[in-house]
Amino acid sequence: MTDNIQTRKFLKMSASPHINSPINTRIIMLDVIIALLPILVWSIYVFGIRTLWITLISVASCVVFEYIYRKILKKSNTVGDLSAVVTGMLLAYSLPSTVPLWMPALGAFFAIVIVKQLYGGIGKNILNPALAARVFLFISFSKELSTYAVPHSSDVVAGATPLALLQKGTIPETGLFDMFLGDMTGCIGEISVTLILLGGIYLIARKVITWHIPVSFIATVALLTLVFPAQNAPNVSFMLYELCSGGLMLGAVFMATDYATSPVTKAGRLIYGIGCGLITVFIRYFGYPEGVSFAILIMNLFTLALDKITAPVKFGGGNKIGEKK
């Protein structure tokens, strides 16, 4: 079929470039969801079907809150970019499977409405929504947030996570291999180091994230715990237990790499990851048994400053950003 040119005298104008990469926000978020899914399946196997309900409630609440908020404020609908789904999954992953079913919904409200949308929506929030909501719930309901399911059983256990033992310098009974595999107690998404690392490799291969934050974050924790083990614990195994325990891997791979709240430059990302590692170990040694959430949230606040001080030198040299000529 050819068009009669005379009937189409005036054409659409647009400014160059006239083509776009096929990769859009939705595809990126879909990749994150794909990387997160195996972790959920494993967790259902370890903690039972309740894990799934918690996750579904969290995801559904995030999506619904985002939809309603944007609708009420007559803003464009952004549910389709799937970022609310990712937030919902990450929020659920950072909760124990034993929490009451209303709790993920409350957390979703905090994450989506207060942390994300009040600041302008995707890309504009200064804190990681899922982590901020987790900390909000942790401070408000610390008992519920510290009660974990025992793997493959209906029993629950309060507080006695491997990290609580490590803080006292005791090596936990759970074998290192089980810890690495994820056959242990903990939050829904943090137990399987193996699957989290595989997810990270997938995201790096798909160019969704770069290696800088996860590697510098984990390496910093590894170095510090190796050099300064708590009490008289044996160095190497103490370090390995520290790496496999708590939310470190989940945080380093999926939370600290959140676009909106982490730097855009490579150097900035390295510093950011090192900062996360330092604060994590500091809190683990001198404060709560777990410090990953706080560490990342604190480093979130440095994102803009890190972008600015690590701004690349423009091609052809000259003044660095912010410098007077």
Binding site: M1, T2, D3, I5, R8, K9, F10, L11, K12, M13, S14, A15, S16, P17, H18, I19
Partner: peptide
């Protein structure tokens, strides 16, 4: 365009130059 068999019905834009830096044209 007539020499090149004409354009198809779904034409959106014509560009002078490449798609990255070329200029959209408003008329044939």
């Amino acid at each position: 365009f007539n020499f090149c068999g004409g354009v198809k019905e779904n034409i959106g834009r014509i560009i002078s130059g490449g798609p990255m830096m070329g200029n959209a044209q408003w008329s044939y």
